[in-house]
Design a protein around this nucleic acid. Structure first.
Length: 573
RNA sequence: CCUCCGAUAGUUCAAUGGAUAGAACGAGAGCCUUCUAAGCUCUUAAUGCAGGUUCGAUUCCUGCUCGGAGGACCA
């Protein structure tokens, strides 16, 4: 990587001058200042009791003496910045490298040889996959791809909630509607699965209403819950539960695949309960204590708050289940890093669980990385919903998709219009989620996402398509991308080589938004250049070939970058 | 009441302690007989308040104001 090479060279120069500090390089906001800048002279001046600008001159002089072929110019700016401009040759080489590397460009080896487990998109079976899951999925999928890009051996799982009182309520409703017969009418076809979901979605709400209104219902629901917990496999209720679980999982596979995700496995909540309970009991009184007939973790002694792990009925709470989940994750996959994504509401809660877990096995705490995202809120939303204001994932996607469909025709995009519209809609949605720093709430403005203008996924897609159109036109004229060293580098090349730095930065901080913002920067640099230059000029085939190389490289970087975000790129639009 | 998180143009978002705080939307003025105008160019406008650390603070520390989340048997 250009940055790392340069950093090492400057560090060596500094050591020779008696400066033992880490040299940090950044890109000046103004390209006219150079490609890299360092403030090493400013921070080291005090140690050496020297004037910062003088010291900067000294360091700059030493760098010039290297006569390094990648460094074109070194200059000093007040109050002591050292600015470095790269040579044309370096930019030319990097441009060639982008074209040669293709889809491999941007990879790094940050986690090479390590095993990383990612858990995301964990659904509540029997409850709809809603807008919040879209957010979780977008972040989880992007994180997965960014982590894979570091060379890690990556496994992706989901943790469906498949057993709870709420599910017993839904099954109670099904019993009223015909029980086993009702569920058996749904086969495994996609249409059936979707019909099932749309019928079953409101049952959770319906069951809760009945439960709250009648003591008789409460009694019946608890009986159902017991049959589920005790795995009474011959009961009608358990058969319904199993059939519904399968249909729900089929739907989960359908919707996550539509979003571009695949899972290597599941850990179910019904598995983690017993394991978690056992773990808690095995660690009394070393970690947990009994209090008011329940088993708790006394977090207050550690500056946190106290949490119940086993309730007074002897059942494991969510806390204990999460312990069981941790154990299963580490025993099954033995990851070096285990990442999972949840709503930020669970932040303080998980801190307690994590601290308790660390007292049982410190790996469970130290190797786990919790990523959170804020709530997705709507601004001026006008999407219909059957579920008390929370739109389902499909409702959101389809609304955006319809708008996309109106703007294009099958002939202009050269592919099935439905597939295409889905690609653009998902890009719009994912990009609006991923351009925001992790942990912060996303204010989703449907109007903005639907406009497809400005800082949006479709804008980046559109820019990619432009590069493809150029390459196609070039091919017709028998002109192909070929980087040529003698042409003065444009601002586009000076942005392109940063992709590797950004992909690494995103991986280190589990922060996909760095990639999103970088892609906008590349797209903008390219579009500006495109508006100024005529790329293909039949009278100057050599220059055209060089410019096509730039266009091709931009296309590669945009495509690879979008891919890291889990966004597909159409070839025409 | 306690704990944690946040506060940046009119709006939605950026900015490993660095230079003149960047984009996009909105508003205003331009650019298609030339490769895709979902584009490009120019103008407009911001670090909640008060201190502190530092050569240098949107960033770190303290207090305040406002907003969000969490705080014993839900998940």
């Amino acid at each position: 990587m250009i940055k790392v090479d340069l950093q090492k060279k400057i560090e060596r120069v500094c050591v020779s001058l008696g400066i033992e500090r880490k040299v940090t390089l950044e890109h000046p906001q103004e390209l006219t200042h150079g490609d890299f800048a360092t403030s090493i002279a400013l921070s080291a001046a005090k140690d050496l009791k020297r004037n910062p600008e003088e010291l900067a001159e000294t360091i700059a002089g030493k760098i010039r003496e290297l006569k390094d072929e990648s460094i074109k110019d070194v200059s000093v700016a007040a109050p002591g910045f050292i600015n470095i401009t790269l040579t044309q040759k370096t930019l030319y080489r990097e441009l060639s490298r982008v074209l040669e590397s293709g889809e491999k460009y941007g990879q790094n080896s940050l986690h090479l040889g390590k095993k990383i487990l990612v858990e995301h998109s964990s659904p509540n079976l029997f409850k709809p996959f809603h807008i919040g899951h879209l957010m979780n999925n977008a972040i989880g999928e992007a994180t997965t791809r960014i982590v894979k890009n570091t060379g890690a051996d990556t496994t992706v799982i989901s943790y469906p909630s498949d057993i709870s009182l709420g599910i017993a309520k839904a099954i109670w409703v099904i019993m009223q509607k015909g029980g086993v017969q009702w569920v058996e009418k749904y086969t495994g076809t996609l249409l059936d699965i979707q019909n099932f979901i749309s019928e079953a979605g409101p049952m959770y709400v319906e069951g809760t209403k009945a439960y709250d209104e009648s003591e008789q219902v409460q009694k019946e629901v608890r009986e159902i819950a017991n049959k589920l917990y005790n795995k009474d496999i011959n009961s009608d209720e358990y058969k319904i539960f199993n059939a519904c679980k399968e249909l729900n999982l089929a739907y989960f596979a359908f919707i996550t695949e539509r979003l571009g995700s695949n899972f290597d496995g599941f850990i179910f909540e019904s598995e983690t309960g017993p394991i978690g309970k056992q773990l808690v009991q095995d660690n009394i009184p070393r970690v947990f204590t009994e209090s008011e007939a329940a088993v708790i973790y006394d977090g207050e002694k550690r500056g946190l708050h106290t949490r119940v792990f086993i309730n007074k009925d002897g059942n494991p709470t969510y806390e204990a289940k999460d312990l069981g989940l941790l154990k299963l994750k580490f025993n099954t996959y033995s990851p070096d890093i285990s990442v999972f994504v949840t709503d930020h509401e669970q932040g303080p809660y998980f801190k307690v669980v994590s601290t308790a877990a660390g007292e049982i096995n410190k790996d469970w705490q130290e190797k786990t990385k919790h990523l959170t995202h804020g709530r997705m809120t709507f601004k001026g939303a006008k999407m219909s919903s059957r579920l008390g204001g929370v739109p389902t994932a499909e409702e959101v996607l389809n609304t955006i998709k319809e708008v996309a469909k109106e703007k294009f025709t099958e002939r202009s995009v050269g592919m099935d219009i439905d597939t295409f519209a889905d690609m653009v809609a998902i890009a719009a949605l994912k990009f609006s989620i991923l351009k925001v720093a992790p942990g912060k709430p996303v204010n989703f403005d449907p109007e903005e996402a639907l406009s497809f203008e400005g800082d949006s996924g479709p804008y980046v897609q559109y820019t990619y398509v432009r590069t493809r159109a150029l390459l196609e036109k070039g091919a017709v004229l028998n002109i192909f991308p070929q980087a040529i060293e003698t042409y003065v580098a444009s601002d586009v090349e000076r942005v392109l080589y940063r992709f590797e730095e950004v992909a690494l930065q995103a991986a280190e901080g589990y922060a996909p938004h760095h990639i999103a913002h970088y892609l906008l920067e590349v797209a903008q640099a390219f579009n500006t250049w495109y508006a100024q230059e005529k790329v293909i000029d039949e009278n100057n085939r050599e220059l055209s070939a060089h410019r096509l190389a730039i266009a091709g490289a931009v296309g590669t970087v945009l495509k690879n970058g979008l891919n890291l975000l889990g966004i597909e790129t159409p070839e025409r639009m």
